[in-house]
Amino acid sequence: MTDERRAMAAAAAVRTRAAEGVAPPGTQTTGPDTPGDDQSDSDPSHPVLSCSASFGSVPRPDPAAAPALIRAQLRTALGTGAVVLTVLAGLPALLALVPELARTRVHGVPLPGLVLAFGVQPVWIAVALRQLRRAERAEREFPRR
């Protein structure tokens, strides 16, 4: 099974670092990192980085800045999560607590039903595209060397 996994990782040409990541857990504790050591990823002698030599002149993401990238991505993701939760918790609460609003009709058509059936899905499309754009921008602006 391990051989198969290694073969897979090799087939995915872009992913040099995966060759190590896919190996069974416990076989790769050779790195200098310890539980509380947040700086270990910046160590240039780290085995993860030694693979990147094969890429020659192609700029590689700089692992030293990884914590900053993770924080930026987490902020973006939490922002998206907050929008989603606000809409999903706010709409039911609003309709349950203000029954008059739930009974609104426009030209005889029940408005809340219409909004729930067709109005919210486009919001999700917009939120998803925004999240995609922001996450990709964070990765593009990430320092390389």
């Binding site: 990541g21 790195g31 990192d33 310890t34 539980p35 270990s40 993860v48 990884a66």
Partner: peptide, 9 residues
């Protein structure tokens, strides 16, 4: 021990 490295990857 490898938590940081895993998160970086």
């Amino acid at each position: 021990r490898r938590a940081d490295r895993a998160l970086t990857q």
